[in-house]
Simulated assay, not measured.
Amino acid sequence: MCRIFSAQTADRYAYQTRSIRLGGHATSIRLEAAFWDILEEIAMLQGVTLGRFLSKLHDEVLEFQEEEMNFTSLLRCACLTYLAEVRGQEDDNDRLRREAVQAFHTAAE
């Protein structure tokens, strides 16, 4: 039963550290490769670069919470939310694309 989980290749769960800019500051985020793959998929679905997607997400979270958060943990949970509630759901994919166009277009103005 556990073979689907235990037989993963090590590169799938190996950590990758990437440098990005959040709120105008350079920082590094360390996530497992599988999470980076999902985040890249989400950014692509929204038609933006991964860096732009992460920066926008970070800004939006600060608007809602107005305090520091564990952004790396938030990213992992965002990936799980995407897999559980969005991926494969055409209506949700379309809604996500529409919201992204509006959010990123407004941010560029």
Rank of each mutant, 00 (worst) to 15 (best):
L22Y: 08
C77R: 15
G24C: 06
V61K: 08
D37G: 05
C79Y: 09
V86I: 10
H58I: 03
E40W: 07
C79I: 08
S73R: 15
T72W: 09
H25E: 13
V61F: 07
S19R: 09
E66M: 00
F64D: 10
T17S: 09
A43P: 04
A26R: 13
Q89T: 04
A26H: 11
L31Q: 03
L39Y: 11
N70S: 10
L75E: 02
A78Q: 14
D59Q: 10
I38T: 11
R21W: 14
L31G: 03
F64A: 10
V48A: 01
R76P: 06
G24V: 02
M69K: 14
T81N: 15
R76N: 08
T81L: 15
L57V: 11
A26K: 12
E68C: 03
L80C: 11
T81F: 15
E90L: 09
S55Q: 13
I20N: 03
L22G: 05
E41G: 01
S28Y: 05
E67C: 08
E32I: 00
D91R: 10
I38Y: 07
I29S: 01
L83Q: 12
G47A: 04
Q65H: 13
H58A: 06
Q89H: 13
E63H: 09
S55D: 15
E66Y: 04
G24Y: 09
V86A: 04
